[in-house]
């Protein structure tokens, strides 16, 4: 198990490293130069050069990368071109908002998938089973941003229950989190429903039943624990999808998180910011997946001994 985790940790670092290199190289390939953009249209060559020195873009690319990595290890990702502040502090301000949104959305989607998926698997062919299929198809066919717009339309413009944007406490989290969650629900729901169905046919479920255990306990404790394993895998795979959904939702709801920063970096070639965001998102993916590996070992004792 330890060996396995070390191996995974090594893989994780390799992934983050590869993404850092790729993004770095890609950004340096682009035609626009941040110093020129920062300087504006009628800046003198001297001004541009001083900006280039400030950003470090006048050095050879390998040198730039070495400096970037060196600084990154000390927590310094450079200065945002657009905001003129250290990237760490720009991201630091936005990060809590994004984490809150991402966590709420994940929690919400898992709750929906669990509630609906288990109920559907327990009663195949019932209205809730059919309903779960409709929910899954609708969630897949509905772009997150449109769902966000519809939610704004209904709950904020028409009914005025929730704010249409910004980050003003929990009420401002409800709509964006719902939009993100509903996009995640279909996969989780489908995988859970099908694994739950096959688990409910297992011998040990029959054993539990033959010993008089209550149906609810059989479904929600005996079977669900086994059936949740594939769902854990899916959540791990979908972390990137979750982050993507969060970025989109932030754009729709003008929510001041990482996604807003990312979109704002679009027109300004804010290299340091984009780099930090890409690396950060890879780190989140990798960390969450390591966490899921550990969770796996907690849920399934058979994993603990092997590998």
């Amino acid at each position: 198990m330890t060996r396995y985790l070390l191996n995974r940790l090594f893989q994780a670092i390799a992934v983050v490293w590869a993404i850092a290199v790729t993004v770095f190289v890609l950004l340096r390939l682009s035609p626009g130069d941040p110093a020129t953009i920062r300087g504006g249209l009628d800046a003198s060559p001297e001004v541009i050069e001083s900006y280039a020195r400030e950003f470090g873009t006048d050095r050879p690319i390998v040198d730039q990368f070495a400096r970037f990595v060196g600084h990154a290890f000390t927590g310094d990702f450079g200065t945002s071109v657009r905001y003129g502040e250290p990237v760490t502090s720009v991201v630091g301000q936005a990060l809590p908002h994004t984490l809150a949104l991402g966590a709420t959305a994940l929690l919400l989607s898992v709750s929906i998938a669990l509630a609906v998926g288990v109920a559907a698997a327990r009663r195949p062919g019932s209205w809730i089973d059919a309903g779960s299929s409709v929910l899954a198809a609708a969630g897949q066919a509905m772009p997150t941003f449109w769902l966000g717009l519809v939610l704004i339309q209904v709950f904020s413009v028409q009914l005025g229950i929730f704010p249409s944007g910004g980050a003003t406490g929990f009420s401002s989290l409800v709509l964006p989190a719902t939009a993100v969650a509903l996009a995640m629900v279909p996969t989780q729901l489908r995988v859970l429903r099908s694994s739950m169905r096959s688990t409910l046919g297992e011998d040990y479920v029959r054993t539990a039943r033959s010993f008089g255990l209550r149906e609810r306990r059989i479904s929600y404790v005996y079977a669900l624990r086994n059936a949740s394993l594939p769902v854990l895998t899916v959540i791990g795979v979908d972390v990137g999808y979750l982050l993507g959904g969060v970025i989109v939702a932030e754009a729709v709801f003008n929510y001041p998180g990482i996604g807003q920063l990312a979109i704002s970096a679009l027109g300004t070639r804010d290299y340091p910011l984009i780099q930090a965001l890409a690396i950060g998102s890879a780190a989140v993916f990798v960390l969450l997946n390591l966490l899921i590996d550990l969770l796996y070992a907690v849920v399934d004792p058979r994993v603990r001994v092997s590998g």
Binding site: D203, Y204, R206, T207, R209, F211, G212, L213, N226, P301
Partner: peptide
């Protein structure tokens, strides 16, 4: 079920829940 009439099944490797200790499985009954 289980209290007055109990069953033993054919395949002990699939009849016991793989994710729970045997203590837990007996205690549940």
């Amino acid at each position: 079920r289980g209290e007055k009439i109990a069953m033993i099944f054919q395949d002990p490797s699939s009849a016991l829940n793989p994710l729970f200790t045997i203590e837990r499985q007996i205690r549940d009954v």
